[in-house]
Write a protein that binds this DNA or RNA. Structure first.
Lengths: 211, 211
DNA sequence: CATCTAAACGAACAGATGTTCTATGATATG
DNA sequence: CATATCATAGAACATCTGTTCGTTTAGATG
């Protein structure tokens, strides 16, 4: 991850905020005043570094000739794909640096609508046919929110410890047991001992690309 | 739909192209030269109309103070939701003005990745549980490409005429019959007379929002 | 035809804008 | 400590930029 100074980070945030609000980039003097810098040449100096490190692109001698490289500026979110989910495999969970987009091996662009404004969203690719009861097919992408608790009726990535099995199901807490309800409501629920159930994220969306 | 003149439409396209390429809007003189207009005041005059009609937002006396209102400028596509698909109902097909976004009752934002650069994409909301064999749930959104022909193995919205039934299945042409294969490969295919099968669009993606 | 409105043109202006340069201050290193 | 590099400041400059105004042209209408 390219290292930038605190001031450069603040300048970048200012640019992003300005762009999201106005739909066009700030001028050098907008940045100067917005970041309490006393000279346009400091802005210029730091913009050159942000460009060198890949955060922006500059067109020289063009008013507001700044382009933000991130998708965030475009109402989209770049979600890291951190691995696969399959029945007999442990469920990948995001590390602290999962949202360090520049370092992600793979990301997908997702409209903000789909993530409902959440910031920490990650994606898993489904492998195999074992999530069919969740109406999720091989190759589907599930968007996940990291959590170890869900409300009743929410769909979660569940790790069943003794079976060593991952599954996606709607979770309902009942007295003394957990009911795991397939999304396919024509199928039967399973009941599990709460001690055997580990919730490893909430499913917030599913995306399937067919062609 | 707000009516704009040919010149205004060309200016708008120029702005969109410039913005997608550079990440910032054109100046008045960029537009002037890009659209072969001989005076900046003509640009100004036409920009005011584009603003009045809702295509752009202008900040006065600000260089490049133009904001495009459309999602297209942000790497996303605004897809019209033209209706519901349910088993016993005719499948909505897009009318010629379906892609007139300003007139659509409902649209969803979709990243360009998901539509693979296609321009004419529409969405249908799934109603009921009858598309379960396609691994598609009540409430899911299917993105469709208008077509009456698909390649073998592609998923299509199929209208079965004598049954008066809509279904989403992979379509395979076989000698003398059409095989309709559920996406859920654990389920059996059905075979239909080609004369009974009407293909009313190709499924290109499925989006499910859970929470 | 005359009249009115919309659209286009051209010139000029004030100020916004990015760049450049020199000098100073801060930090890191041997 | 001395030296080198990084970061900041301030001033000045050329030109880009949007706006304004008066005029002309185009199109529609009675």
């Amino acid at each position: 991850m390219p290292k930038i100074s605190e001031r450069q980070r603040r300048i970048l945030e200012f640019i992003q905020g300005f762009f999201e609000e106005r739909g066009y980039p700030p001028s050098i003097r907008d940045i100067q005043h917005g970041c309490s810098i006393s000279s346009t040449s400091v802005v210029d100096y730091n913009l050159d570094i942000l460009e060198r490190e890949g955060y922006i692109r500059r067109d020289r001698e063009v008013s507001r000739g700044l382009e933000l490289k991130s998708l965030a500026a475009r109402g989209q979110m770049e979600v890291p794909v951190i691995g696969h989910i399959a029945a007999g495999e442990p469920i990948p969970v995001p590390l602290a640096d999962a949202w360090d987009i520049a370092a992600s091996a793979e990301t997908i662009a997702v409209p903000r609508d789909l993530t409902r404004g959440r910031q920490e969203v990650y994606a898993l690719k489904v492998k195999g046919l074992s999530m069919i009861d969740a109406l999720i097919d091989d190759g589907d992408i599930v968007l996940m929110q990291p959590t170890s608790m869900v409300e009743n009726g929410e769909m979660a990535a569940v790790w069943l410890k003794s079976e060593k099995e991952a599954t996606l199901k709607r979770v309902y807490a009942e007295p003394g047991r957990i009911r795991l309800q397939p999304a396919n409501s024509l199928m039967q629920p399973i009941y599990a001992d709460p001690a055997n159930v580990e919730i490893q994220g909430k499913v917030i969306a599913v995306v399937r690309q067919l062609g």
